[in-house]
Computed example of a mutant assay.
Amino acid sequence: MADDKPDVAWRIIGGLVGLATGWAARKLLTFVWVKATGKEPPVDTEAPEVSLAEAIGYAVLMGVGMSVAQIVVNRTARKRYDAWRALKQVTPGQ
Rank of each mutant, 00 (worst) to 15 (best):
A25E: 05
A25K: 09
A47M: 03
V32A: 04
E46Y: 01
D44W: 00
T30Y: 02
K27I: 15
V34S: 04
A9Q: 11
E40Q: 14
K35N: 14
A9M: 08
Y58I: 01
W33F: 15
F31Q: 13
W10I: 01
R26V: 11
V43R: 08
G57M: 06
F31G: 13
I56D: 13
G14Y: 06
G57P: 04
A53W: 02
P41F: 11
T45R: 11
K35E: 13
P48D: 06
L28R: 04
P41D: 02
W10H: 08
G15T: 03
L16R: 04
I56A: 11
W10E: 12
L52H: 10
V17D: 01
G57C: 07
R11T: 01
A55I: 09
L19H: 03
P48V: 08
A55W: 09
W33D: 15
L28H: 03
T30M: 10
K35D: 08
L52F: 13
T21K: 09
S51P: 09
V17R: 01
L28F: 15
E40K: 08
V34N: 04
V17C: 05
A55L: 02
K39Y: 06
L16S: 09
A20Q: 00
P42R: 00
K35R: 12
T37D: 04
V43M: 11
Y58C: 08
A25S: 14
E49W: 09
V43A: 13
V34A: 01
V32I: 15
R11D: 10
T45W: 00
V34E: 14
L29F: 08
L29Y: 10
E46T: 06
D44K: 07
L52E: 11
A53S: 03
E46K: 10
L29V: 10
L28E: 09
T37Q: 10
R11S: 07
E46G: 09
E46F: 01
E54F: 05
R11N: 08
S51H: 05
A24K: 06
G18R: 10
P6F: 10
E46M: 06
G14I: 08
P42N: 00
V8G: 03
L29I: 07
A55C: 13
D44T: 00
P6H: 02
I13R: 08
D7W: 06
W10V: 13
P6M: 02
I12S: 13
D44M: 07
Y58A: 01
P6Q: 00
A24Y: 14
A53D: 12
W10R: 01
K39W: 04
W10Y: 09
T45Q: 10
A20I: 00
G22L: 02
T21W: 01
T21L: 04
L16V: 07
T45S: 09
L52S: 08
G15M: 12
A25Q: 09
P48S: 06
A9H: 12
P42L: 03
L16G: 15
E40Y: 03
G18K: 02
I56L: 15
K39H: 12
G57Y: 00
K39C: 02
A36N: 12
D44L: 02
E54Y: 03
I12P: 05
G22M: 12
L19I: 12
